[in-house]
């Protein structure tokens, strides 16, 4: 247990040490590259803003991710169970996913003008539902027919088969995708926060650091974002342990 916590902590400390060394050895001023020692003062100076903005970023990301889970799972179920839907929807989904989401920021801010919270959540959702939809779809469509037949031969309904077999069997793939989606959702949130004028959240704080030439603040925001990303990632890991812990084979 001690090793489990100590190992990543030591790795982070080594990383920060190397970063500090790099900046010191090159003699870079903090407007070129801030060093780790610049960060605590930056955090301290804006500590209230970090809490307020960090919370805004976090809740909007989580709501967007939550929507991505619901809609992604639904789309995954549709393309997983129906070959017709799969043939029809795959090109659309892939095309949509291929669009750089930054290009959609002006589009959605024109459609939903002034709805900053809504736009941010929408972007977090749009950027993160794809991996979930694809993995659930693949999980369901590759279910071996024998799994279905053992219950179907007893006259079980489609819903019972889904609940007792297809759904739990897809959970490991689902959580694999959710880990990817959780970090993607942060990208979506920040995209809107940074690009749209009068934004809120950590993205807006980053933008104001840039406007005011406060480089340590910009780096501090990046670290805060990384920190939130790590928290959300481990929250997903925790849920995975609870709901799909059986897929984790000890010793393998």
């Amino acid at each position: 247990m001690f090793r489990k916590i100590a190992t990543p902590v030591i790795a982070i400390l080594i990383f920060l040490g190397l970063w500090e060394l790099l900046v010191w050895a090159n003699g870079w001023p903090n407007y070129k590259m801030a060093s780790p020692s610049d960060l605590p003062p930056a955090f301290w100076k804006y500590k209230e803003l970090f809490f307020v903005m960090g919370w805004q970023t976090l809740w909007r990301t989580i709501v967007g991710l939550f929507l991505a889970v619901i809609v992604g799972t639904l789309i995954g179920m549709i393309i997983g169970f129906s070959k017709l839907a799969r043939d029809a929807l795959y090109p659309l989904l892939i095309g949509f996913n291929a669009i750089p989401k930054a290009t959609l920021v002006p589009v959605i801010s024109l459609i939903f003008i002034g709805q900053h919270d809504f736009n941010t959540i929408l972007m977090a959702f749009m950027i993160s539902f794809f991996p979930i939809a694809v993995s659930v779809g693949i999980g369901l469509s590759t279910l071996e027919p024998e799994y279905r037949d053992i219950l179907r031969a007893l006259g079980a309904s489609k819903f019972t088969i889904f609940r007792k077999i297809a759904l739990p069997k897809t959970l490991p793939e689902f959580f694999g995708a959710l880990k990817v989606s959780a970090t993607l959702a942060f990208i979506g949130t920040n995209l809107v926060e940074i690009v749209s004028p009068h934004g809120r959240g950590l993205g807006a704080l980053f933008k104001s650091g840039e406007t005011n030439g406060d480089y340590p603040l910009m780096f501090a925001v990046l670290i805060a974002l990384a920190f939130l990303g790590i928290i959300l990632y481990y929250a997903v890991i925790f849920l995975e342990r609870v709901f799909a812990g059986w897929a984790d084979r000890e010793g393998n």
Partner: peptide, 19 residues
């Protein structure tokens, strides 16, 4: 005419539910 509860099946693949 359709599935019935009085049938049992086993296959080459044991298809046990891992969870």
């Amino acid at each position: 005419t359709g599935p019935r509860k009085t049938v049992g099946m086993a296959f080459q693949n044991p298809v046990l539910l891992e969870w």
